[in-house]
Amino acid sequence: MHHVVLDRWGCGLSPVHRRDPRAKMLAALIFLVALATSHQSYLAVSAVYFALLVTAIFAAGLPPAAVLRRAALVLPFSLVFAAMSVASGDTTRAISLVVKSYLSALVVLVLVSTTPLPQLLGGLERTAVPRFLLLVVQFLYRYLFVISEEAQHMRAAAAAKGGSMGRVISRRRHFGAAAGAVGVLFARSYARAEAIHLAMLARGFAGHFRPLAKSSFRKLDAAFLAGAVAAIVLLRAAIEAWT
């Protein structure tokens, strides 16, 4: 099942995987701020930051091509705004939008691919993010997969009967059928989500995921954070001084 690929990547044992989620989240946050606030030399900064992320991908043992491809999912959205910038005559802003959005998606993807969700949420909880918000995030994440899996089942069923969801949606006269299929998808997903929730309740779930892995901020985590922050800040400062 390809939709669980992030869970699979998150279960690695690399040095990056073993770092405390808080260290990784803080490093990612600083990366995003440094990237977003770079202006004149953003292309050089982006190239160096891209190299940093590729190094992290290799260090984490993630499949580089797959990670880079998945991060590109953000491009259709940023390309729309980039096209508007080009239309208004600001090509530099357009390129900046595309590059920065891609790198932002990539850093977040590296973070979630090296930190299993329960650990990530545990880290967020320890940094005083409201528990209700975290509960919403964890159920959203879980049930998005449920919907995706149900959609795959329905597509297989349609194909088995000689149909194609794509063809149905592409023909205007079949819009009614497509809308019906979407309705059925949500009804089925809802029923399935209910069943999963029941199974969780049956095992004593009371609204709080407790991760099995112990999380303590150690010297290695502090060293990782210090190293990452130093690399992000110093590289940008050096590039800006040079240009």
């Binding site: 998150g10 329960p118 999963i196 004593g204």
Partner: peptide, 21 residues
């Protein structure tokens, strides 16, 4: 349906879900 009952990333974490709760 066991699929409904297994929702954690690893087998160990899934089996430990109840005891942790």
């Amino acid at each position: 349906d066991s699929e409904m009952q297994l929702f954690m990333p690893t087998v160990l974490e899934d089996v430990a879900f109840g005891p942790l709760n």
